[in-house]
Amino acid sequence: MLGGVFIILLLQLVGEAVQKYFDLTIPGPVIGLLLLLGLLLILRRLPRRPRALDAMRDDVIATSGHLLNHLSLLFVPIGVGVILHLPLLEDQLLAVFAVIILGTIATLVVTGVIFARLISRRDLNGGADD
């Protein structure tokens, strides 16, 4: 558990440092995600690796499971701030909410349909167009 927490925090730290240094628009934690994914994939390719590395990997996987089980909870603090700051929108409130609700519904449908079509076409081709 502790080793897993350490690795995850370390990669986020590296991600934040890279983001600040290169002044990137991608947030630090997303860079940390890419680093962790890269490390896990490299580790899988190593033919002979010390057992300690495998143990570390299993630890990271278990810790991630705990973190992701209640991912929704983590949005509560910022969400409460949203409710309390709604007056910021004043008389534009209704129109903004109309844009959010209609826009989100339309985006869900369009994206879902495009992706579903693309993957079903691949399935028909036997996925051989790589």
Partner: peptide, 23 residues
Amino acid sequence: FNGAKFIHFLLGPATVALAVPIY
């Protein structure tokens, strides 16, 4: 938020942890 920030903080590590299901 002074109390809730401990929960808020976990958003960053949780984002990093999303690498695991993708892996």
